[in-house]
Simulated assay, not measured.
Amino acid sequence: MVRIIPMASSIRPSLSSIRFSSRCGVSLSSFNNSSRRLNSFHVGCVTQSQLFSLKASKLVRAEGSNMAVRATGNMAPVSSAITQEDALDWVKKDKRRMLHVVYRVGDLDRTIKFYTECLGMKLLRKRDIPEERYTNAFLGYGPEDSHFVIELTYNYGVDKYDVGAGFGHFGVAVEDVTKTVDLIKAKGGKVTREPGPVKGGRTVIAFIEDPDGYKFELLERGPTPEPLCQVMLRVGDLDRSINFYEQAFGMELLRKRDNPEYKYKIAMMGYGPEDKNAVLELTYNYGVTEYDKGNGYAQIAIGTNDVYKTAEVIKLSEGKVTREPGPLPGINTKITACVDPDGWKTVFVDNIDFLKELE
């Protein structure tokens, strides 16, 4: 659903992506090529917002401010003036789910073949937008309205991307790691870590690379409703990142582990238990505070009930909002975009609008 194009003059921005352009700002769409039209739910305008503002560590109402959204002709408040404590409490109660992860590949058909034949994913949908010179494919282990999925982006004529040192891997839960690795080898896939217990633990894992060099960790576990279970990113200050994702994103710290022998720490963050939900794995390597992110990995999309409140809480939590909340021109899907303290991008998408796009 969401695509951020790399900074290359030869690649044109597209309507079905988040894009950064001096002319038209940021745009996102998940429409099929045959139905690029307005949603029936129309958000016509947003007046001056009833702002959250940080003052003496409190979120207070700006004097005389007002926020409303016109929806099907009726004016309705989007947010209310609340304290900082109430704002952070709202984040915990907001209906949030990791929707999909977005990244770029050099040969879409080759990648689809690898993911479906070797990793057992299903091609959920595919769309080509020739006038914008890109193609998207959505793959996963279940429908997009209930599962965390992958969005692949192929930009015409671009056959290679820099994965970077900051991106770690995707995690896929399988019932038998050894059998999966044997299958991947038979299909000509690259295995970078043979099956065996994780260092310092008992979980059987293996590492493989897809045709573009993105790493996948295979984790041996029983049947799970969310086989696409992890996105691992490296950060420069683990405690800072944990605090940010708890406060700004409403995630829960599921577990934290220090491995002094191997000089790294990890924190699992998410919206539910690891065996039933996709989670974000944050990794801190001792002494490393910055990473090259490359131009292959793009972002994660997360659903929310209110993009306006989401943006203000992100600001309150010292995050940087890169796209102010509101409906996108022409499509009316409401989004907001931000970066975390390490510069990793996330887009929040209105839950109702997301389901309408899937229709």
Rank of each mutant, 00 (worst) to 15 (best):
E318F: 15
C24E: 10
E226Q: 15
S29G: 13
K185Y: 02
R61W: 11
A337S: 12
D89K: 14
N243F: 10
L119W: 01
V91G: 00
E252N: 12
G196W: 13
S40D: 07
I5N: 01
M268W: 10
D342N: 05
A8S: 09
N39C: 00
A298G: 12
G287P: 04
G166D: 05
S14R: 10
Q84I: 08
E261L: 14
R133M: 12
F207S: 06
W344C: 04
T180P: 08
R221N: 09
S49I: 07
V313K: 06
E85Y: 14
E312L: 09
G164V: 08
S49H: 04
M251L: 12
E175A: 14
Y214W: 06
I335K: 01
P130Y: 08
T289K: 15
L59T: 09
S34H: 06
E151Q: 14
P130V: 10
S16N: 11
S241H: 06
E359D: 08
S34G: 04
V158A: 08
F216V: 04
D94R: 01
T336A: 13
A173Y: 06
R36Y: 05
T192C: 11
I266S: 02
V204G: 02
Q299I: 05
M232N: 04
F216A: 03
R221G: 12
I129A: 07
R323Q: 00
L316G: 07
T336W: 08
T180A: 12
E85W: 09
G200K: 06
E252K: 15
E220G: 09
L219S: 11
G222M: 10
T72K: 15
P273F: 05
Y245F: 05
M7C: 10
F354L: 07
F41Y: 15
F354T: 00
N305F: 02
G222E: 13
P273V: 08
L51G: 14
I11L: 00
V43E: 07
A311T: 02
F348L: 05
T135A: 03
A76V: 11
D159W: 01
I129T: 05
L51P: 13
P130R: 13
A56K: 07
L233S: 01
R37D: 11
I82H: 05
K187G: 00
K276Q: 12
I4L: 15
E246H: 09
E194F: 13
K92H: 12
P197M: 14
N32C: 09
Q84M: 11
T322E: 03
T289D: 15
V181S: 03
V78F: 13
L218N: 03
T203E: 13
L99M: 06
T111N: 06
S16P: 07
N295G: 01
G326A: 04
I82D: 05
R19V: 05
E85N: 15
V231D: 02
I331S: 09
V177W: 00
V163I: 07
C338W: 00
L183P: 03
K190N: 12
V174Y: 05
S241M: 11
A62P: 03
Y284F: 10
E85T: 15
V69P: 04
S49Y: 08
M7D: 13
G171N: 02
K320D: 07
